[in-house]
């Protein structure tokens, strides 16, 4: 690459598109292929079931964020559990 062309080369958008598609399709092929939710959705659902088994959580107090990546994905579940501290203290007393 010459000096001039490196200065005037505009950042092209096609490589960005290719990267985005590769990540997305890797996830979608799993999801659509067997007609089930993808792994993260399944994890999320089962984690919620476990939480609900132990504490009554309000749907509104659960924040869920997802970031699907190429190497790894992040599922962030933020649960506001009511009165857990009281319970823990009661448990200590018992």
């Amino acid at each position: 690459m010459t000096f001039l062309s490196s200065i005037f080369k505009r950042r092209s958008s096609a490589p960005v598109a290719r990267d985005r598609l590769q990540i997305l399709l890797a996830h979608e092929r799993i999801a659509v292929g067997d007609g089930k939710d993808d792994l993260l959705a399944k994890l999320h659902r089962e984690i919620m079931e476990v939480i609900k088994r132990h504490v009554a959580v309000d749907q509104d107090k659960v924040q869920i964020k997802m970031d699907r990546g190429a190497q790894c994905s992040v599922l962030e579940i933020d649960v506001e559990v009511p009165g857990l501290t009281d319970r823990a203290e009661n448990a200590k007393k018992d």
Partner: peptide, 12 residues
């Protein structure tokens, strides 16, 4: 989602 660039963040 793709046009908005939010495809990686869709949960529900």
């Amino acid at each position: 989602d793709l046009v908005m660039g939010a495809e990686r963040r869709v949960v529900f």
